[in-house]
Design a binder for these strands. Structure first.
Lengths: 280, 280
DNA sequence: TGTATTAGTGTACGGTGTACACTGTACGCA
DNA sequence: TGCGTACAGTGTACACCGTACACTAATACA
């Protein structure tokens, strides 16, 4: 019933199967496999053109207004404060009015996630080398996550992907194309950089979340230190205790420096591979 | 309105900087600064010795029973099914009985997360080289995340860390110590491998979640493909479209191979650094 | 002009986390 | 032996959540 008229989508279906990590040719050229229905439904609703018929009263607001209101609430008070009632009343309407635009909260949150993700910074001309661009991309991604720490309070499921998310993939693909790697390797490299950027942003995001709660950096660090410090003296964690109490830790990296250190190692590994493949 | 103005945040002193990867001795022993009170409270409750006095009726169940019941429910029906009522009635008690052991749901979930994380596999003797051990650690971590895909439905906040989480840190620290790096670098290397392992497990976890819902791998791939396939033909995403439709993608990596490919690049980068520092 | 279609409201319902007062049990001390 | 007290578990109540459904009112097209 839903989406029956999407003839165009159907015609495209042969090319629609793909996974970020591993696309078989058959996946892309597509077969008779029915896609995960829940993902399909959510993806459709995320990309749906929400224009309505022309009959009836004028809408008092638009889907984008709803999403914007939700993002503002999340920015101010965290994702838990984003209730259907809160969103609606910020717009000056009753709760149920929102349901004219989003069939349920999950769908709204899909849109909120994409809006919160935002667009990647545009690649500047003249273009830099791929390593520089990847570094910039990773920094931008981390900054984006820290700017909206409530994104971390949502499940980190990958799908459905909205236009903004695809925008980030487009940007990194563009930079990776400069390596000269083939498509499969670009996909692999993409996973590496994206995986590292998201996984290793953890600490900074955690700090950003604390900041949003009015905790200072020093208080946050003391809390994390005390938490991890429980290892100290515990016979189950001798090595880790030694690590965090080691005097050489007296010259530690900042959170940012730590991220950069790791990023350079990751890029080193990638560069090594590029060199081995491209210039034999 | 949220949060007092971050007075101290701008003026960060050297002593205030700390990350999981790099804690100053003062941070750990940590004194001058009051730790984030919420984190402190949750951390305490997570590590608390829950033995009670001897008076009164015998308890009908123990905190571990509660956690186990919650994990079983999550394994069966996802984290959303873990309600206080569901947990209690699985144990044969009323909802409020659970509150004798956990002051609120958040505290219970902290314990559930740690229980779901599980212990890392023990390091086997004779010990392998550090690279092999790190590879095993990353694989084990990914397997652990896939085994409990509902962990991904919870916010990926780092803290508080329970004993199992520290067990993983202990294991990787033990392996990293074999590199001969100093404490600060070990902390950095730890972030790299852990960051990559968690970030790049995304795809596999997403598949595992779909499986838990009864979706086959083919259906999942078709769904993700259709979702990402929306880029095809969209002028905003030319490079990414080209990537996922490229014929060279006809010889793709599986999800597992893709993870391994990235892991080797990451370890390459780390090894390069180790060599440059250790053997000049 | 109807009349079909749409926007937004009002009400109601089942489910959630949890505060609080309660009953009943069993230890430790008199 | 009995009593006081600390504790385990129950029952009830509440505010809030997402959302189903029936409704009114407004609008463009026949």
């Amino acid at each position: 019933m839903a989406g029956r008229k999407k003839a165009g989508a159907g015609a495209r279906s042969a090319k629609q199967r793909a996974t970020r990590a591993a696309l078989t040719h058959d996946d892309i050229m597509g077969l008779a496999v029915r896609p995960d229905p829940e993902l399909r439904r959510r993806s459709e609703l995320l990309w749906e053109d929400r224009t309505r018929g022309t009959r009836g009263p004028k809408p008092g607001f638009a889907p984008d207004d709803v999403v914007r209101a939700a993002v503002e609430i999340a920015d101010a008070d965290g994702i838990a404060a984003v209730t259907m009632h809160a969103v609606a009343s910020r717009l000056g309407f009753t709760t149920m009015a929102v349901y004219r635009y989003f069939p349920n909260k999950e769908t709204l949150l899909d849109a909120v996630i994409d809006a919160g993700t935002g667009s990647p910074p545009p690649l500047t001309e003249p273009r830099a080398d791929w390593r520089t661009e990847l570094r910039q991309w990773a920094h931008a991604k981390r900054a984006s996550l820290c700017a909206r720490p409530w994104l971390a309070e949502l499940p980190f499921v990958a799908a459905p992907h909205g236009p903004n998310w695809l925008g980030w993939l487009e940007a990194i693909t563009d930079s990776l194309a400069r390596t000269g790697l083939n498509a499969a390797d670009i996909g692999g490299a993409l996973s590496i950089v994206d995986g590292y950027a998201r996984g290793a942003s953890d600490t900074a995001v955690s700090l950003a979340r604390a900041r949003a709660r009015g905790i200072t950096e020093a208080e946050w660090a003391a809390g994390v230190g005390a938490d991890l410090g429980r290892a100290i003296g515990d016979p189950r964690f001798p090595r880790f205790s030694a690590l965090i109490t080691a005097p050489s830790a007296g010259n530690p990296r900042t959170i940012d420096e730590s991220f950069d250190f790791g990023l350079e190692r990751v890029l080193d590994g990638l560069e090594l591979y590029v060199r081995s493949v491209i210039a034999p």
